[in-house]
Design a binder for these strands. Sequence first.
DNA 1: TTGTACGCGTTATCAT
DNA 2: ATGATAACGCGTACAA
Lengths: 323, 323
Amino acid sequence: MATIKQVAQHAGVSVATVSRVLNDKGYVHEDTRKAVLKAIEELQYNPNSVARSLFKKSSNTIGLLIPDITNPFFPQLVRAVEDVMYPKGYTTILFNSDENIQHELDYLKGMTSKYIDGVIVVSNTLKWEHLEPLTVPVIALDRHIDDRIASVTIDNYESSFKALEFLVERGCRKIAHLAGPAHVFTSSERLRAYKDFTQKHGLEEMIQEGSYELQSGMLNTMQLLTKYQQVDAIFAGNDVMAIGALKAAAKLGISVPKELSVMGFDGVEWGTAVTPELTTMQQPIYQIGQKAAEMLLKRLETPGLSPEHVRLNAELTVRQSTK
Amino acid sequence: MATIKQVAQHAGVSVATVSRVLNDKGYVHEDTRKAVLKAIEELQYNPNSVARSLFKKSSNTIGLLIPDITNPFFPQLVRAVEDVMYPKGYTTILFNSDENIQHELDYLKGMTSKYIDGVIVVSNTLKWEHLEPLTVPVIALDRHIDDRIASVTIDNYESSFKALEFLVERGCRKIAHLAGPAHVFTSSERLRAYKDFTQKHGLEEMIQEGSYELQSGMLNTMQLLTKYQQVDAIFAGNDVMAIGALKAAAKLGISVPKELSVMGFDGVEWGTAVTPELTTMQQPIYQIGQKAAEMLLKRLETPGLSPEHVRLNAELTVRQSTK
DNA sequence: TTGTACGCGTTATCAT
DNA sequence: ATGATAACGCGTACAA
């Protein structure tokens, strides 16, 4: 690895001059510029990012903190973020927190010492006081954390309401809710919508709580279906649970959508892999990631912007699992 | 952000002493050590990773180069790598190449200037000459690149053979192959096995090439099934295509596994989400990632180790999509 | 237009 | 046992 010093020597100039042509700053004679360029080429010189970071107190790197990349919701989100950051010269570092606050705090601590320039955070546990000490822009993704922290979210409550309305329109009256974990903000919003909806429409409230996983979705649907015999629709807290419900129905010999309608939430790719294909409230996952990255980029360029709160809309995608 | 200098001042010692207690190196009196620790605590001092990297020419960071995180094969792999690297103090940077050699070379170039300590690579295009200039340990994952580059792979050829043998055992005789893209090493190996197998057993060769995607799997199965009427089994190049085949069968009213057996390859989670659940040649995805990370770690600790080539075994997981 | 010299925050060597 | 200082590679005042 050649250094700027060697390039300077090779070109017969000083390091300052090399730095100038490197960064197009200050005056430099065309001839010397060419000589420097030639030296750079010959020595295959590549500026040292670490040294540059030390001086600039900035690493052209952002952190992306998510619960777990193996959750099918996140790969697309991650891709979106990288797809917008990379062309702008930023590297993205991914962190899996497993929703463990200790891990999250560890990561955050590491970031500042690495001159990470900004962070995108998906977390149910992180609060203002944890993020406040960070001197870099932060974007909260998927979950709103605090009014003082910019965020990109979707309208979980309203969308859930719409999903439920659709089920009623299609003639469902005994609608059960397969709820996600209570500590997850998005699932509690969806649950809240379900409760309000059933109350408003005078429908029976049938709730079964589980975790955001396939097995859980299946097992809990089994329980649900034995506990409440007359269920004619299931509104699941997310797609993975909904697919679990589909599996349970298949196992119990219940025909979907004829005897039972199943509605998911998220719009992950899995939903198109199953038969019948899953009807779902589709989040614009890729756009959410894009938007968050763009907001971060804006704050990177012009620091001190007031916290913006963007709310995207989920959209009902009717496929085959509902009447 | 406090610096080591400020800590030294605060504790009334020199930076050298602070550095000593920080790194447990050299002698330092117990009293002064305590004073330093106290200063560190009071100033909330956090050593600057960038400055440290500059001096050490090492960033405690590794690169993980994969085609695309949205391919369901990779999230688990990525998790595995991070799960072993992080506790050892290493940060993992993920790069999505989209199998584009230019992107790959760009990433590689960026790595050296960042003092990245090692790389794990999943690529069909990268060759010895691209990796050779790297001065850090490299592990090739999933695809063998060169004898001189350590690798972790699975026995694609033999496993495919076993999968096909299983189908024959179950009475299938008209076995078609839904092949993955020709430029992907793993799929050409699986294709090769299919060809050898049919020849060995005197079976008709029925091949349809597609891409590693759901739609492609479905469409190509449709074509396959119209072109060759009597097909009684499909051996797919990967699980996603196999699931596409399942969808095609459902659409055509063909009952799986009664009229048609479907065999996948990979063992991604999706395979358990569909009905019938997918029979597949299951790769130990997580272990592959683990093993690669461990190999890298070993080479990080003791450089200059000769290239090791580990080959893991895929295992037949019989579920419901085969007779 | 170009060069000198210092600072970014650490670690390691060499004195003391 | 502790301190001063050079070095890591780069960018930028300031001087020339």
